[in-house]
Computed example of a mutant assay.
Amino acid sequence: MGWLSNLFGGGSNKTTTTSNSEPWKAAQPALKSGLSQAQKLFNADKDGSYYSGSTVVPWSQQTQQGMGFVQNNARANMGRTGLAGQYQDVINQGGFNDAQRAALANTQATANSSFNINANPAFQQVLRQAQNAARDSVNMSAGGAGRYGGGIHQGNLASEVGDLTSRMVGQEYQNWQGRRDAANNNLFNMGQQGIGNLGTAYSGLNQPAHDLFQVGAMNEDLATRQMNDKLRIFNEKNQAPWDQIARLNAVASGAGQMGGTTTQSQPGQNPFLTALGYGATGLGLLGGF
């Protein structure tokens, strides 16, 4: 049966593969041109290009004017000058300005006063007018009855004027008590107000400094952005050559992958069986021999 194996075997079953990494021939001119241009660009700018100017937006004219206005006002109202001086006076006077201290003094006088019927000139004037009116009324009544100057007339006059005076003095005492109680209550409220005024005055006293802090913070922000911009330029300058090398390497390493051919050979059909008409099934049909 060996002769049948030699006759119908068709040769060896070994497969041969040949690979070629050379780029596709049709693409080679374009690749050579691209590599040449990339090399020229690299040689012309090995250090790379970067923007060396500043990207920080400076203060506008309007902003600078506003900052100058705030700064001048702050300096004009610091220490003992301007508004700060007034606030300092309020603090020194326990939380009250001059007008408030005058009102406080009047309130204290009323709150600490003792009742004195002669202490209110206005009341004395009203009392005298009321007494005179009462006398006139009694005198007219007595004169009309023909009793003017008599004992009954004098008794009625004293009673009428005395009752009127007592009532008015009593009412004035009640009014004084009300005024003194109100003054004590107001005095307490004014003390509380003075404490609040101290906090307000202290805040106002420090406001010019806070305004200067804001202007200073704006200048510090600008200085920080300018410094960061310098660092950006420094980093970009140092990185630019490495970026150029990376670009050239990317072109060079990618060019070797843009093509290549592969050839593979495999055993074909037995020519003797093909001539007999069995083709690829010949071995199967003759397998029984």
Rank of each mutant, 00 (worst) to 15 (best):
G10W: 00
N13Y: 03
K25I: 06
K25T: 07
A27K: 14
A30K: 10
L31I: 10
S33W: 00
S33C: 09
G34D: 09
S36L: 06
S36I: 02
Q37M: 11
Q39P: 04
N43C: 07
N43Q: 08
K46I: 07
Y50T: 00
S54Q: 09
P58A: 13
S60L: 01
Q61I: 11
Q62T: 03
Q65G: 07
G66P: 04
M67K: 07
F69E: 11
N73F: 04
R80E: 14
Q86M: 12
Y87M: 10
I91R: 12
F96R: 15
R101K: 10
A103C: 07
A103F: 00
T107A: 02
N112P: 03
N112I: 01
S113R: 04
S114G: 11
I117L: 09
N118C: 03
Q131P: 08
Q131L: 15
N132Y: 09
A134H: 01
D136W: 04
D136P: 07
N139C: 02
G144P: 06
A145W: 13
Y148T: 02
G149P: 05
G151C: 07
G151N: 12
Q154Y: 05
G162R: 08
D163S: 04
D163R: 14
R167V: 08
V169M: 08
Q171F: 05
Y173H: 09
N175L: 14
R180T: 03
N184W: 13
Q192I: 06
N197C: 00
G199M: 07
G199R: 14
A201P: 00
Y202V: 08
Y202K: 12
G204C: 02
N206C: 01
D211G: 08
D211E: 03
F213W: 14
A217R: 15
A217T: 10
N219L: 12
Q226F: 01
Q226R: 08
M227N: 12
R232P: 02
I233M: 12
F234T: 10
F234W: 13
K237H: 10
Q239L: 15
W242A: 09
N249M: 06
A255C: 04
Q264H: 04
Q266A: 15
P267E: 07
L273N: 03
G279S: 09
G282P: 11
G282R: 08
L286H: 01
